[in-house]
Design a protein around this nucleic acid. Structure first.
Lengths: 197, 197, 197, 197
DNA sequence: CATGAATGAGGTTTCATTCAT
DNA sequence: TATGAATGAAACCTCATTCAT
């Protein structure tokens, strides 16, 4: 087993356990190490502590999502098209990676998450903040309603998150048709209605 | 201090601590009992354990919300009016009771929450499930889109939850005008668009 | 068993173990709690942590020693007499309480000890710093040699500590005659030799 | 790097770390190996374990001290002169090698130290036990007081150790004049006083 | 010979729960 | 009924040592 394999095993084991049982249902030695198939001390060769491990998982998940979205994303396409692309892809990604979704939900509902949310919403935008930049561009170009950025996030993301949760829990069976419908509905929620749509 | 006072103090103390620090930042003896002004053992005279206490808090919060909504709610009013009433009132309620919102979010993001959500969405509807009954009625009467109930929940509730979180964390300042806008936007998201709106 | 009994048991158990095995040969749960006959968690009801427990042991030992010395100690007696009284009593105290001596040696040979030594030597003198005040008075009144306080400590205390260690380890059998001899020798080491002695 | 270089680097690194942080503040892999610039496993090629490494450090320090003292030491000189020579040189050596002093103090305050002290005091004298042989000779020739060997050690060494500690911790500034004074005071403490001094 | 990743026993501390008062 | 001292399992983390490379 290569070094990076062990690191990956630890990340995977922790991701799964946290997604399934929450941060406090994933004890380091008894469960993470055991599921990863490594000794308890090994975790601390790769991560400074539980917090660092969790932060690293989040960073990797974010990276993977961006890598999934970027290839097909072009700033040259119209705003609406880009919005539909991003939203649909995000939904599909999390449908295929339910564990990632569960982890990110846990993370966002924790002190870490609050800090992160603040940075993402109020801090400087980075190039990879695709969704934020898209919404800001729409606000600036008056294609979107004259509302605060956070409200656009709420209107666009809130339903998606809610749907994904229900789908993953089996309360709802998302398919392509439904995805298309909800994404368009979200677009309608944020775009200026006096235009042609 | 009457018996029921002690019970209420324990509920209040646990609610506050969990809302603020999460389930695992609210140790029973060291924090809940101390803040409630009772002995550690007393908690166990009123509640079977931590889980039962948490479940009871949720039940009481739900009850309070319904009591807040019911008086002004009339099944005789048009669907749209009722939707706007319920949504607006819910937003105002949680703006005034941020602690309740924080607790419910914690709760919904835990194993308890999954079970509960399943019951609420898939189980028998009760009279007090105002929102669910409203949406179901709209679906049945073809005033709302032909979508699964869970999707209507997502479209109607998702943005509200997201907004409330941002408002409570101070990322966004909700006011009456914004509330009206978002509630109407949500209605537009779920109603059949071929009708008069 | 009264509350204070448990606290005392913990203090006693920790004192014995540290005296015997050093700070790191006295694990809290496995040894201190076991020897004290209490649960591991009980230690933390009485002390904030290992450091606080150790500091408290030292404080109690210091207090006991002062209580042993004070009754027969009078500032009205001549300096030489007081010196001999204090030194002899200290030796006897530690001969009878070898465990205290071993603990204090451990303590003084640790980061705590350095801080403490600095305070005791360089900080403000307290009334109960009998030895320090005695030496300082002798320096001020020119009955002792014109040397720094620390050097007087070394000349007066160094041999005593060394002897006690050897006695306790069984390398030397201290008796009253030897004690008298060594205490007088120490006095001769620090007093001005041009006087009558 | 030659083999013996690695061994020396390990010894040096461990010496420094133990002098600074105590036996338990010097983890083998994380600190000793890193500071020595070798792999963690390499330590175990040169030493059986931590205990053996520590014992070896002590042996080397003792050897270096003897090598420092021997060249200028002549059994032909008078006892008093030899005592003053040895004591002064020891003080100077440890002033120049504070790390050695700190290590030896740690060592002597540990289970190892007790065993060693027993051997040195009660076992057969070796030629290189300069101080012990000197004191024993003085006792045998009735130049020193009729006291047990251990007591002479205490009277002669106790103050020196105490002074060195204070000097190294910065509580006292030793200089040649002070060294001369204290060494003579120690001699006065152990010599028979009815003679000419 | 040299490495350093891996180990897992053992360290300190927390906390839900019990039970004698 | 109410208490809160006591408990001990279990949490996170460290570190002396081993062993495959």
């Amino acid at each position: 087993m290569k070094n990076s394999d062990k690191r990956d095993e630890i990340l995977r084991a922790a991701l799964e356990l946290i997604a399934e049982h929450g941060f406090h249902g994933a004890p380091m030695a008894a469960m993470v190490a055991e599921r990863a198939g490594v000794g308890a001390g090994t975790i601390y060769r790769y991560f400074e502590g539980k917090d660092a491990l969790i932060a690293e998982i989040f960073a990797e998940l974010e990276k993977k999502l961006v890598e999934y979205l970027l290839p097909g994303y072009s700033l040259d396409r119209p705003l609406r098209e880009r919005f539909i692309y991003l939203s649909s892809m995000i939904i599909r990604y999390f449908m295929d990676n339910a564990i990632h979704f569960r982890f990110i939900e846990q993370y966002m509902n924790s002190p870490y998450g609050v800090t992160l949310r603040r940075e993402r919403l109020l801090g400087e935008a980075r190039d990879i903040d695709l969704f934020r930049n898209l919404l800001q561009e729409g606000i600036d170009r008056r294609e979107l309603k004259d509302l605060p950025l956070a409200m656009h996030f709420a209107l666009a993301f809130g339903p998606i998150v809610s749907l994904l949760r229900d789908h993953i829990l089996g309360f709802l069976a998302l398919d392509d048709a439904l995805i298309r419908k909800v994404v368009k509905a979200c677009w309608d929620g944020i775009r200026r209605q006096d235009g042609p749509g």
